[in-house]
């Protein structure tokens, strides 16, 4: 177990439209990986290729360094973007069915279903027909469907869409819990704040190409560059003059000058000490902190 999923040089076109172009990334065990991209960037296509629902035109998918086989793929857990279960089937029945389709024997499928429904607070709805459940509860059954066969890899397409804030927290906890158990977890989302909160690693995809990939913290730190937030208390309570501040430091530009504080980008060769001096020249220095960009900011930057 605990094998990492690796996509190597995956390409796929639909007619003239190139959906994925030489896509390579890794989903590590024990970590949650956020898969980020604009609508139509190729997230769903990549996930379908991982699951074997679609075939790539080129490239390969490996788990633990070995090519995927049917029995291995059958042990993947999947939550498709277009949610769907049998509306007229009882909740427990369809989980047992899906478990068995994934290769469980009847007894194990029953046991897992029972445990999952209890865990998700749906034990009393086990014998209800799915479409009589509220949408939130149907979503929980959908999660159970991805987990019922103890998957060795979890792939979830937009697992947070349509969830209320409490359900979002529960879903986040669930993903982390599975990751902590050693299962590589890949999920897509365009709610970047959420991704930032939940995931350890990030893959950013744009127009079918991976534009950034790696540990979320490292990515942010690497993109942090030389950006500082400066706050100065001036005599008489006058606001900080951001333009004067930047003008005093060679190569510096103002990113944001409002609210009595300035965000200044020092560029590649700007000097922090010059910035400190320029700030002191205006008054008492109250704050000078390096600014780490949020994922959303990085995303906007790389996808632009």
């Amino acid at each position: 177990m605990d094998r990492e999923l690796r996509l190597v040089g995956i390409s796929r076109s639909f007619g003239d439209h190139v959906a994925l172009d030489d896509v390579s990334f890794t989903v590590r065990p024990g970590r949650t990986t956020g898969f980020v991209g604009a609508n139509g960037a190729g997230k769903t296509t990549a996930m379908r290729i991982i699951l074997g629902v679609l075939a790539p035109d080129a490239g390969r998918v490996e788990l633990g360094g070995e090519p995927l086989t049917l029995p291995v793929r059958a042990r993947f857990g999947y939550m498709p973007e277009e949610r769907g279960l049998y509306p007229k089937m009882k909740v427990a029945d369809q989980l047992i069915y899906l478990g068995r389709v994934h290769g469980l024997d009847l007894a194990t499928a029953r046991r897992n279903t029972e445990a999952l429904l209890a865990e998700l607070g749906l034990a009393d709805r086990a014998d209800d027909v799915l479409h009589t459940l509220s949408l939130g509860n149907q979503q929980r059954v959908q999660v159970a469907a991805a987990l019922v066969h103890d998957p060795i890899l979890l792939v979830l397409d937009e697992p947070f869409s349509g969830l209320d804030p409490i359900a979002v927290d529960a879903m986040g906890a669930l993903l982390r819990e599975r990751a902590a158990a050693g299962v590589p977890v890949l999920f897509s989302s365009h709610q970047l704040e959420l991704v930032e909160r939940v995931c350890d690693d990030v893959v950013i995809i744009d127009h079918g190409r991976v534009v950034a990939a790696g540990e979320a913290q490292e990515l942010r730190a690497a993109r942090a560059g030389r950006r500082y937030r400066v706050r100065v208390a001036r005599d008489g309570g006058a606001p900080l003059d951001a333009a004067a501040l930047a003008a005093a430091v060679p190569g510096a530009t103002v990113v944001d000058g409002g609210n009595g504080a300035a965000v200044v980008d020092l560029g590649t060769d700007g000097d922090e000490q010059a910035l400190v001096a320029a700030a002191l020249a205006q008054g008492a220095l109250r704050e000078l902190t390096p600014v780490v960009p949020t994922l959303a900011e990085i995303f906007r930057e790389v996808v632009r």
């Binding site: 379908r48 999947y78 498709p80 949610r83 769907g84 279960l85």
Partner: peptide, 14 residues
Amino acid sequence: EKQSRVVELLVAAM
């Protein structure tokens, strides 16, 4: 199965 979209789960499994 197509209409309810469950088919994607099924073809992922077999």
